[in-house]
Simulated assay, not measured.
Amino acid sequence: MKKYIIILITLVIIPLGGIFMKERHDKKTEAQEAKKEELYSLANKRMTDFIKTNYHDIERIDYTNDYEVNPMGGISINGYLNGNKKKELWGIYDKGNDKVISFTVDAKEKPECEDKVCEY
Rank of each mutant, 00 (worst) to 15 (best):
M1H: 07
K2D: 11
Y4C: 01
I5D: 00
I6P: 01
T10C: 14
L11Y: 05
G17V: 05
F20H: 14
F20E: 08
E23C: 03
R24N: 14
K28T: 04
E30V: 05
Q32L: 12
E33C: 02
K36P: 00
E38S: 14
L42C: 03
L42D: 03
K45L: 10
M47E: 01
K52S: 03
T53E: 14
T53Q: 14
D57H: 12
D62F: 08
T64D: 13
T64W: 11
N65G: 13
D66C: 06
Y67T: 05
E68W: 05
P71F: 06
P71Q: 10
M72Y: 11
G73C: 07
I75Q: 02
I75F: 05
S76F: 12
I77G: 05
G79M: 12
Y80K: 01
L81H: 01
N82E: 05
K85R: 14
L89H: 06
W90A: 11
G91P: 02
K95I: 07
K95E: 14
G96R: 04
N97A: 15
N97K: 11
N97L: 13
D98M: 11
D98Y: 10
V100K: 03
F103T: 08
V105I: 14
V105E: 04
A107P: 02
K110E: 08
E112A: 15
E114Q: 13
D115V: 01
V117Y: 08
C118E: 03
E119C: 05
